Amino acid sequence: MKGRLLIAEDEPGIRNLLAQLFQAQGYTIDVAVDGLETIERLKETEYDLLLMDVNMPGRTGLEVLRHQDEVGRRIRTILMTALDEKEAMDEAKRLGVVAFFGKPFDIFELKKEVTVQISNDVSG
């Protein structure tokens, strides 16, 4: 097993594409359709990496990150966003986000970053 990923994305097409791509790469994949479901999944399961949209219903990506901070359980996170939100990105960095991808993103670059982050998690 390569690692366990949680993909939190409200757009079904993107969510399904990412799930299929990373499952084909040998990762164990769970998905969440909004921020509330993301928080619940994080409570229930240990993940190696969270791949999350910033703007989701229920709770935003930043709210999910703040929730992790409150309970003291951190996970490496890659954020995806269609918006250029410098202030939000600055806060996300303070909350431990390891990488950002603007939508539309380069799927090959995203795949490479996931591999790097999972390798970092496993090795150190």
Score class of each variant (00 low, 15 high):
M1A: 12
M1W: 06
K2T: 07
G3N: 08
R4T: 11
R4S: 12
L5Y: 05
I7H: 01
A8K: 00
D10Q: 00
E11W: 01
P12W: 02
P12C: 01
G13R: 08
G13H: 10
R15G: 02
R15T: 01
N16S: 07
L17M: 14
A19M: 06
Q20L: 11
Q20E: 13
Q20D: 11
Q20F: 07
L21G: 00
F22A: 01
F22H: 01
A24L: 05
A24T: 07
Q25E: 13
G26V: 00
G26H: 00
T28A: 12
D30Y: 11
V31W: 05
D34M: 03
D34P: 02
D34K: 01
L36S: 11
T38F: 10
T38I: 09
I39T: 07
I39H: 03
E40N: 13
R41L: 13
L42E: 08
L42Y: 14
K43L: 12
T45C: 11
T45Y: 14
Y47T: 02
D48Q: 07
L50Y: 08
D53Q: 01
D53E: 06
D53G: 02
V54M: 08
N55W: 10
N55C: 08
P57D: 12
P57S: 12
P57T: 09
R59D: 05
T60I: 12
G61E: 14
L62G: 06
E63T: 13
V64M: 13
V64W: 14
V64K: 10
V64R: 09
R66C: 06
R66D: 08
H67A: 15
D69G: 13
D69S: 14
E70N: 12
E70T: 14
V71H: 14
G72C: 09
R73K: 15
R73V: 14
I75H: 11
R76H: 13
T77M: 05
I78E: 02
L79E: 04
T81R: 06
L83Y: 15
L83Q: 15
L83I: 15
D84N: 15
D84R: 14
E85G: 11
E87V: 13
E87L: 13
M89F: 03
D90L: 13
D90S: 10
E91W: 02
E91N: 07
K93W: 09
R94G: 04
V97N: 06
V97D: 05
V98W: 00
A99W: 02
F101N: 05
G102V: 04
G102D: 09
F105R: 04
F105C: 05
D106M: 08
I107G: 07
K111H: 12
K111I: 03
V114G: 04
V114F: 04
T115F: 10
V116Y: 13
V116M: 12
Q117H: 15
I118Q: 08
I118N: 07
N120A: 09
D121N: 08
V122Q: 10
